[in-house]
Design a protein around this nucleic acid. Structure first.
Length: 641
DNA sequence: GGTATATGCCAC
DNA sequence: AAACGTGGCATATACC
């Protein structure tokens, strides 16, 4: 048996690599001892990369270990090693992984150890670290990577196993992208580091648990996050069907459009529309005056400035206020088509598993506020004003897509947290909140502009924005905005009071905000005003996560595709889709601190895009389900009006 | 070849 | 008095 000694925090540790049947017997005896003792064992996998669901993906090693001993099972192409790993994972009573969702999905898909088997006995050290301090290193936190955490809590000189291996990859003529798949499975550094990771995570766990206890973070919150992680992992495993012919055509059209407009821009000397310097220089050369600058002092040529120059409004419709600048127009169009093609179209086209599905990574606990993120491709950020991208994603065959979102959840959470009595009354009465506000401030004859202003001020409260930003955003004159904000504060005194209280407490209590679930959110000292936003955004996130757990308990997870901040996207057989969506809506709906959080279920057709099409005609032409159900298309158009 | 930063834009 | 929050990700650019 190969073995690699290594000193961790002054202790001798050993990584064992079983080769013979006798070696595996030793491994099994170790597992039996650990299982009897009820110990939590560190676990990890090495694989060919991060794209778990790609057809060429391979699991290479499975590691298990405690604070002193690690075992690396070279399972790739070795049935007896796979069997031993499977047996060990099933026998051990408690496991700890760093970033468990990844390894659990790898083991589910490539070692046939179900998510449902390992999930309930798994602790994720990354979740615990996030609960202790959600900030990555560059934001002033301790960081969330295993290396960063172990440097603090285990051994400052512990190696950067991932980083150091990158150097090894280079030494064998591979890159970071190819190294994990190509490195010899017997390479001593590879095996040594594979074992070290589980020794490190075993040692990290008790320290993190102590830290959470000392910080006053409840065990129930950690349990909540682990359950949420497992529901999200199940959604990630399910993935989403891609309309492959549609995507192929879409990418073609977008690339053509990007090229066409790039060619126009090149006539003005811009060789790359994505180079802000080139664009700015060319515009100045054409006689345009650019006044705004970026943080580093360069002339700013962002979308809003280019839209002005191209004489387009925010909906890209001609405004008729000036002669459109053709370069600005070409740059806008080329950039948009290019981004939609690469970030969304190509990502969908090239990220497929062998069943034609994509499996975007759902990070259930990502942001400082605990918000989730989705990447590869970023499905939470697909264009919503235009249905063409979402049209590429489909419910399962024979299903209809559905979506359920909360109505104005962040405003309602704010009303609840701030105990804002006037706002709570309006919500309880089922009033349109922004119209209600406009009426209180401007009287019964308020205009749509007044309502828009009030809506903006409300969002400003949630985001912490000021008068100037709001004025820029709505186009309303600064004095009008200031007046509206003043009136708003007098109308909803509870919000100002709450915001002031959070900030006062934060300054007295180490610049943190505590949320109702007992989550501790660190604030930047120079942005204490963000406290209200953090509390609201984080609590709204926890509302959706509680709903995910409630839905899971009712067996609804099988219908869910994605969480999108205040919304759940799902798929259900066409004959029961309406019922499923209604049930999801009922389960998501709840009362939070006395404030009702209503939901709005909506059932579409045979593509996600159908939920974003406004006209029945469009639905019938571009969505097969509506093509077969014209009456439903007409009804959907009516509802969306 | 790789990283870090700047800029910009997509969503809620 | 004023302060717009959270992400993912592409491209350009400078630098190692």
């Amino acid at each position: 048996m190969k073995h690699f000694p290594y000193a961790v925090a002054g202790d001798e540790t050993v990584t064992y690599v079983p080769e013979s049947a006798a070696d595996l017997d030793l491994f099994r005896r170790w597992v039996e001892r650990k299982a009897r003792a009820g110990e939590t064992i560190g676990a990890d996998t090495e694989t060919t990369g991060l794209d778990i669901f790609s057809p060429t993906y391979r699991l290479r090693t499975v590691q298990l270990g405690d604070a002193r001993d690690a075992w690396v099972l070279q399972v790739e192409g070795r049935p007896e090693m796979q069997e031993a790993a499977r047996w060990a994972l099933k026998s051990l009573p408690r496991l700890v992984f760093h970033n468990a969702a990844f390894d659990l999905l790898v083991l589910d898909r490539h070692l046939n150890v179900p998510l449902a088997t390992l999930g309930p006995k798994t602790t994720d050290s990354k979740i615990l670290a996030h609960l202790y301090d959600p900030r990555p290193k560059h934001e002033g936190g301790y960081g969330l990577a295993l290396k960063e955490l172990c440097a603090r809590d285990v051994d400052p000189s512990a190696p950067d196993t991932q980083g150091d291996l990158t150097a090894v990859f280079r030494s064998i003529g591979e890159t970071k992208a190819t190294g994990w798949a190509k490195i010899d499975i017997h390479h001593p550094t590879y095996l040594q580091y594979a074992g070290l990771d589980v020794i490190l995570v075993s040692r990290l766990l008790p320290v993190l648990e102590d830290r959470l206890r000392a910080a006053g973070i409840r065990k129930t919150l950690a349990d909540f996050e682990h359950r949420v992680m497992l529901v999200c992992a199940a959604m990630e495993r399910r993935g989403m069907l891609v309309d492959q012919p549609y995507v192929a055509d879409l990418v073609g059209r977008l690339e053509e459009e990007a090229t066409l407009h790039a060619a126009k821009a090149s006539r003005y000397g811009v060789t790359s529309v994505n180079a802000p310097r080139q664009v700015a220089d060319a515009l100045v050369g054409m006689g345009e005056t650019l006044t705004e600058t970026t943080d580093s002092g360069a002339l700013k040529v962002d979308k809003s400035i280019l839209l002005d120059l191209a004489d387009l409004d925010t909906q890209w419709q001609p405004r008729g206020t000036r002669t459109p600048n053709p370069l600005a127009d070409a740059v806008l169009r080329s950039k948009r088509a290019g981004k939609w093609s690469t970030s969304y179209g190509i990502a969908m086209r090239d990220g497929l598993d062998d069943a034609g599905r994509i499996h975007p990574k759902i990070n259930s606990l990502q942001a400082r506020t605990a918000r989730m993120s989705i990447s590869g491709p970023p499905l939470q950020q697909l264009p919503s004003g235009d249905w063409t991208i979402r049209r590429a994603l489909l419910p399962d065959p024979g299903h209809r897509i559905f979506s359920v979102d909360y109505s104005a959840v962040e405003m309602r959470v704010l009303a609840a947290l701030a105990d804002e009595t006037v706002m709570k009354r309006a919500i309880a009465e089922g009033r349109d909140l922004h119209g209600f506000t406009a009426e209180l401030i401007y009287g019964p004859n308020y205009t749509s502009f007044h309502r828009k202003l009030c809506k903006g001020v409300g969002f400003g409260k949630v985001y912490g924005g000021g008068a100037l930003t709001l004025s820029r955003q709505t186009g309303a004159p600064l004095p009008d905005v200031k007046t509206a904000i003043g009136a708003y504060d007098r109308t909803y005194r509870g919000i100002k009071r709450y915001s002031a209280k959070l900030q006062r407490e934060a300054r007295a209590d180490g610049y943190v905000v505590w949320t109702p679930v007992g989550r501790k959110l660190p604030l930047d000292r120079d942005r204490v005003y963000a406290a209200t936003n953090y509390a609201v955004q984080s609590t709204a996130r926890d509302v959706l996560c509680q709903a995910l757990l409630d839905m899971d308990a009712k067996g609804l997870t099988d219908y869910l595709l994605l969480p999108i901040h205040d919304e759940c996207l799902g798929t259900a057989p066409a004959d029961i889709a309406e019922d499923v969506a209604r049930e999801v809506g009922k389960t998501m709906a709840m009362t939070f601190m006395g404030v009702p959080l209503d939901t709005d279920p909506e059932v579409g057709g045979a593509s996600w895009g159908s939920l974003y099409m406004k006209k029945a005609e469009t639905m019938m032409e571009h969505d097969p389900w509506y093509a077969a159900h014209p009456d439903e298309a007409a009804a959907a158009e009516e509802r969306r009006r």
